[in-house]
Amino acid sequence: MNGALGLYRAGTSPLHRLPATAKLTGLAVAGAGSVLVDTPAQTAAFVASGLALYPLARVPVRVLVDMVRPLAWVLVPLAVFQVVFIGWGRTVVLVGVILALVLVANVVTLTTRTTDLIDVVVALCRPLRFIGVDPLRVGLALNLAIRCVPLMADLAGEVRDAQRARGLELSPRAFVVPLLVRALHRADDLGDALAARGFDD
């Protein structure tokens, strides 16, 4: 399972060198600005600028296509449906804006390390301290969770193999219950390990 590896693609392009905060701000600006896009011409310009980021980030076309393909499965039926109800112009704007924002958002994901993004999340949590959010705990939870993804995938594999070895049907209940019970015990172990390192409450 490649869940732990992430979608980030290492590189040295100008977009890679840009700090995470700058890219996320750019994305937020694009999102806010997208509500002003009204006409098919503006939409085309918006999509074109989104696309232009990909050669700038030195992302191969194949990667771009792979990321956009699932979206196409949803956008094409939507477009076909909406053309009937809201007409060509508005449909182009609707679908184009979604496409443009997804393009911009994906290029941020492709060029920004997960660790840098976690730092941004933790930094964003600092003003939330007054409602009881501890940024350090947030960072801990995120880093821990990243490691738990392959851990749980391995656990799921073990449970599946154990069930198969017993010749049992892989019914959802027969599989998920042992998985969750083992996961809960793992959480206990993790809690003990954290406490041993002084992360007690």
Partner: peptide
């Protein structure tokens, strides 16, 4: 004390 591990583990479960 168990909350952070439980939350992190279950995020992994949802992914799995």
């Amino acid at each position: 004390r168990r909350d952070i591990p439980l939350v992190a583990i279950f995020a992994g479960v949802v992914a799995a």
